[in-house]
Design a binder for these strands. Structure first.
Length: 216
DNA sequence: GACCAGGCACATC
DNA sequence: GATGTGCATGGT
């Protein structure tokens, strides 16, 4: 498909999803820091289980960079137990916190004052932060124009014959970044709408008949 | 009781 | 570089 057609197609899908489903108001969270912690906790995990973990952190008054800096890994793991993979996620949160203090004196604001791509490269060097987590942090916590790709995005695009089964993260991301305006608001909604479609229609056993993307 | 969920790192070939 | 596996809880 030529560039212009691709771009038209992607805009068409977005408009269909937005008009039939409406704004998703993502990311649920009271602060950029909460969004970052949520992004790590939701790795291969249902959001319901993540919400419980975040609630537990709030109840212990631990949802704060310095508090987490001073908290040992073991009590952190116990607190986020409901999110699954709790030992490894406790490590990943601590890795991010150490990064935040090492480079930005623990300030989320200072971190996000960095330019998009240099910051993305730095985030990706943290053990436990991969492309989806990094991009979620950049877009939903930092308000930066980057397109987030996830398992739902890939599944939906494969089923609509827009990408091949072997397409990797950066190929899928480039499809959107190179064919759409770098519009933060749209990137925010677009990914959230894909998650909605993935959860409700484009499941392992898909429900294509009532799916808003039917025919696209 | 199997299967899945808003990934990632690491081992092995 | 591609493919497989461990990490773990809670909902359907």
């Amino acid at each position: 498909m030529r560039q212009k057609r691709k771009s038209k197609k992607l805009i068409q899908i977005y408009q269909k999803l937005y008009t039939s489903i409406g704004p998703r108001k993502w990311w649920p969270g009271d602060s950029p820091f909460e969004v970052i912690i949520g992004a790590i906790l939701t790795q291969n995990t249902s959001w319901k289980n993540v919400e419980k973990a975040i609630k537990a952190l709030k109840e212990k008054n631990l949802l704060d960079p310095l508090k987490l800096y001073n908290l040992k890994e073991d009590p952190l793991a116990k607190t986020i137990k409901s999110s699954g993979f709790f030992n490894i996620k406790a490590k990943r949160i601590k890795n991010f916190i150490y990064f935040l203090f090492e480079h930005y004196q623990g300030s989320i604001e200072k971190m996000f004052s960095e330019k998009l791509m240099p910051l993305r490269e730095r985030l990706l060097k943290i053990n436990g932060i991969g492309p989806e987590t990094a991009d979620s942090i950049l877009l939903y916590a930092g308000g930066k124009p980057i397109f987030v790709v996830d398992a739902y995005t890939k599944r939906i695009l494969i089923r609509h014959n827009i990408i091949s089964k072997v397409a990797n993260y950066s190929e899928i991301q480039e499809l959107f970044m190179e064919n759409l305006e770098k519009d933060i608001r749209m990137f925010n909604e677009y990914h959230a709408l894909f998650v909605y479609i993935g959860k409700h229609f484009c499941k392992r056993i898909p429900d294509c008949e009532t799916c808003p993307m039917k025919g696209l």
